[in-house]
Design a protein around this nucleic acid. Structure first.
Lengths: 145, 145
DNA sequence: CACCGTTGTAACCATTGTAGTTACTTCTCG
DNA sequence: CGAGAAGTAACTACAATGGTTACAACGGTG
């Protein structure tokens, strides 16, 4: 028997990488417009505006309505990748891993799997996020030469 | 102005947690059928069969066609969460983070962001996966009392 | 051999997230 | 006022997920 299975998968949204791009750009080119950012990212201006809205809500950037132009509200050295990651909300309830629910409690595995896995996966996620927290936008900018 | 934005997000597929549940169950109840597993997980048997197919391909389990029943091909102490994670292929090309492409190279940020971010995020992902590699199915089973 | 339960798969569907697009309103400054 | 920019709703196309039905293939057992 010949079996062909194409496994399709998912990844964390490009919102995150676009947001990092956006903030870096604002740091390098203060008061740049959304259209300018969209040009560098090479996407639609509305996509940038949506992400800028999230960054505003997170208190990372400030946008001048009417006249246009964006500015950082924090020093690039004080903005970590984790800040941006959280700002664009790429994970539900900050849970990277989704765990199936409603396992049968009659079974010793089903009764415990949710909580045990929850704890294990939370630790794995925490390590990833700690690494994101160690890199600042300022550090990224140093690599853009 | 009142702004309400509901941010919907994504997570790693429950295939992973269901696969861990499945392997744990086989370890505890050798030769159990797919229907039995589906009962404990509380989902459709076909969902289990699909995941079992991936676990078979990864060389983790063996299923007896016709008669039914599954068995582990490795010792539970030699199966890590990372093995299962990779087996069910929840990330594309093993890249957890998706990075936007086609940034404008005329811009210093656009020219460098892809590679710089790629390196940073790969490190964060690696830390998470290393943590998954530190937990075995056997260790999980000890917690199911 | 025929039956029956199990596995292997294909096909389909509803739901959801993503990302792009159009269109229109609102805002500020010259 | 007019121009340019941001805010936002609405729509689209596409893909992943997870459930479901249906059916073929397999392999013991009577």
């Amino acid at each position: 028997m010949v079996t062909t299975v194409v496994v399709k998968v998912k990844q964390i949204s490009t919102r995150f990488s676009i947001a990092v791009h956006t903030i870096s750009l604002i740091a390098v080119t203060p008061d740049c417009t959304g259209d300018y950012i969209a040009g560098s990212v090479n996407t639609n201006p509305v996509v940038i505006r949506r992400i800028m809205g999230m960054l505003k809500k997170a208190g990372l950037v400030e946008v001048k309505p009417g006249v246009g132009g964006a500015a950082l509200l924090k020093d690039p050295a004080d903005i970590t990748l984790l800040d941006v990651y959280h700002a664009v909300g790429v994970t539900e309830n900050n849970q990277l891993f989704r765990i199936h629910e409603h396992s049968k409690i009659e079974c010793s595995v089903g009764r415990n799997i949710e909580q045990v896995l929850q704890d294990e996966l939370a630790e794995a996620q925490a390590l990833m996020e700690q690494r994101l927290a160690q890199t600042t936008i300022a550090q990224l900018l140093e690599k853009f030469k």
